[in-house]
Design a protein around this nucleic acid. Structure first.
Lengths: 138, 138
DNA sequence: TAAAACGTTGGAGTGCACTCGAAGCAAGTA
DNA sequence: TACTTGCTTCGAGTGCACTCCAACGTTTTA
């Protein structure tokens, strides 16, 4: 906690940097997972303090937030790593990144449709259970 | 294929029974997975031919269809097994089954919301890439 | 009848995404 | 100073949902 105070950049709420446990608390990811993300290249290289400890920036937090969203789509980690690589490679990969994102968008859309179908099935089943009759199966 | 003809119950399209490979083709699950489902109790006991081969009924197919829907929700297999057990235990578990289904329904609903949030983020990102500017990150 | 195709079993292996443990160094606290 | 907390690394372990293998029996096709 004293670390937080000593590293605060001001009262704006914007911080110069965060320790790994702070980021863990903020993102819900474990410190282990954050280190693992860095190892596999899913994080841009994180700054280090003079003693070698990680110092995450606001930008890192933003990236992790976006990765969290991608994770929710069910995108494999390997694909996220690929995207991260493209970002690192610079501006000439913009088109490929856009395509990757649009493919993901299509996946999410069809996933939503799937879930809505499932919802309809569940509603039918549930309404079945609502009635007093014995039901045939399932 | 001759198996299909020889086991057909009529021209209605309703079949007396199906072999494991037919069910695999119809459901998209592998024969391995179908046997595994039975082993872990996710299938009601499947009929056998006089030589011990599985003979799936229309009812089994319906059950597998429903299980497929549950799987799409991300429900753990263990929970589906629990539901299958409740069905086997009979009528007095109807209330518990309904609750389980309603909990699942709530999960699906929040999953859909999550995905819609993600979609919004993706759209923002994608629109970023649509413009010609260099972008700051991600 | 011979070959090909499909079925059975139990148990081991795979891939993914973490998740944890051990050993050790560094910073802050009583 | 001693203790607590947190950080480091590497590598091993976990849980899930399959997925495959080997060895063998059965059924269909040529």
């Amino acid at each position: 906690m004293s670390v937080i105070a000593s590293t605060a950049a001001g009262r704006s709420g914007t911080r110069a940097h965060y320790t790994i446990s702070e980021v863990a608390a903020l993102t819900g990811l474990s410190a282990h997972t954050l280190r693992w993300y860095e190892r596999i290249g899913l994080m841009p290289h994180v700054d280090r303090s003079h003693t070698g400890q990680r110092r995450f920036t606001e930008g890192d937090l933003g990236w992790l937030g976006f990765v969290g969203k991608l994770r929710l789509t069910g995108m494999p980690v390997a694909d996220m790593v690929r995207y991260a690589e493209l970002v690192r490679e610079g501006d000439h990969t913009r088109e490929e990144r856009r395509e990757l994102l649009e493919a993901t968008r299509r996946d999410v859309l069809s996933r939503i449709t799937e879930l809505q179908d499932t919802l309809a099935v569940l509603d039918i089943k549930i309404s079945h259970y609502g009635t007093a009759c014995g039901g045939t199966s399932s």
